[in-house]
Design a protein around this nucleic acid. Sequence first.
DNA 1: GATAAAAATAAACCTACGTTATCGCGCCGT
DNA 2: ACGGCGCGATAACGTAGGTTTATTTTTATC
Lengths: 281, 281
Amino acid sequence: MRNATNPMLKRLSALVSLNDVEVELLESLTFEMREVTAGEWLWHEGDSAESLLVISEGWGCSARYLSDGSRQLLATYLPGDILGIFELLSGIRRNDVSMLTDGRVCEYSYSSIFTLLTASNRMRSALFVIANQHQAMLAERLVSVARRNARESLAHFLCECRERLLEFLPDDVDGFQLPLSQQDLADALGMSTVHISRTFSALACQGLVRRHHFHMVILDPQRLAEMADFDDHYLNCDKRILATNTPISFSDSAAAEWLPSMSHESKGRPSAEGDEPTASS
Amino acid sequence: MRNATNPMLKRLSALVSLNDVEVELLESLTFEMREVTAGEWLWHEGDSAESLLVISEGWGCSARYLSDGSRQLLATYLPGDILGIFELLSGIRRNDVSMLTDGRVCEYSYSSIFTLLTASNRMRSALFVIANQHQAMLAERLVSVARRNARESLAHFLCECRERLLEFLPDDVDGFQLPLSQQDLADALGMSTVHISRTFSALACQGLVRRHHFHMVILDPQRLAEMADFDDHYLNCDKRILATNTPISFSDSAAAEWLPSMSHESKGRPSAEGDEPTASS
DNA sequence: GATAAAAATAAACCTACGTTATCGCGCCGT
DNA sequence: ACGGCGCGATAACGTAGGTTTATTTTTATC
């Protein structure tokens, strides 16, 4: 794999196979790397949105705060995650986003992102896929909160975290850092901190997980996934589509500008297209 | 307002002010109108996605079905709603979608939609805004299920329905058809049917709503919104952005192709741009 | 209009979770 | 070393909402 100090490049190249032109384009993007600390706000609802953020280190989250003072986590953001895609066109931040831990974020101005989107179908698709993933996670969270009991819900969350981290983790590791306090987990899963604690104990008793402070070990991923009714499909289906370059049958030339991987060049404008040698249609 | 038998035109022109070229383009789109009946599936998760659907009459919903047989409604679709935007680029349906009532849907092939997206910034933005709205509703539903009690939750849902319908309803009406059975509502709000029933009684006792079968009357919208902590912002903020044509400051020409309403023409390709005389930057 | 099927209500009972409170532990600054 | 503080664990208790069963109302079918 290529040198990837550029976080955006790192993330996108994990999602789609980029050609040299695309890599070059990504490497030429200017970004500002910034140190952030736990609890720091990345932005607030209503702020004007002019840049896209990639988390390079640390965890973040978006949340809604209610009038009674409680909050509901809407999403967690892991290293490699890209934030602010949804606001690209509206120009206004939709939720509060803050860091759960110390870390490092990279800021890309929307104008450079627009260049990217215009130049490459695959990268446009990749950003869509990321946005889709977050929508899918949100839906799955709703299912958890609405339909699963505490143990299933927590188990599901742990499975999800593991699956999301797997991509960036060495294969042999069976544990990972889960830098969420029980308060954070409670806010994410719609439970009380006390019950999070209880539920962790229960899962530990069943020999499913082991936890020491922020370090999680999933002892029996299979059984945990079973009890949570966890299916990684919602996290990976779009990824697979991009990976296999599944072409969708369209004759219209307009489609070529939008679809992930049509093999013909788009009509004469600056373009970074070109396909890897994969199963073609 | 213009003749709008074309449901897509009707919806988009309610969202953004379209110019004549755009209207013409929309009117030239071919679509297939289809009668559908309550309970009919529009598509299933995993189906290949090749078209966008506009609900012209009736209500629909998307849902996740769990292994224990229960289901969770993820979204409701009202007349005018556009379905399948998210699948534009992935080409695969992500959730099961079915009709809650008899109705009528219009199908637009993705290829014609791609034409639309390529031709007009504003329509591209409009579709994004609609996708954003659904994401926002999903988030708000999560908040409801996770943080609000039954009365607040139901009240919030009713407020949301009212707000969404308001656009298409005569102003003077204080009642509307809410064609969801208590089972449907329970599936949407993560509660049991009996508790939906109880909660309706409670709301009725407090003089907040009146309900006769599928006909809802919100007796005191203000008080209902208060108790639900309902703020229509999440439904309307993007709409307002489009309406006021707020320009976002970008010097890059690539941005002009993406943003809702930059006033300059995009570079020489077929374009349906042109702006209404509004407050300029 | 008679009948069956579906939806809504109601009452009784139960449990998964919230709430409150207490205690122990590791971390920090003085 | 000390006390303060945030975090997590455990226990006792209360309750919102689930479950079950039965009765009534509404709708659909003929």
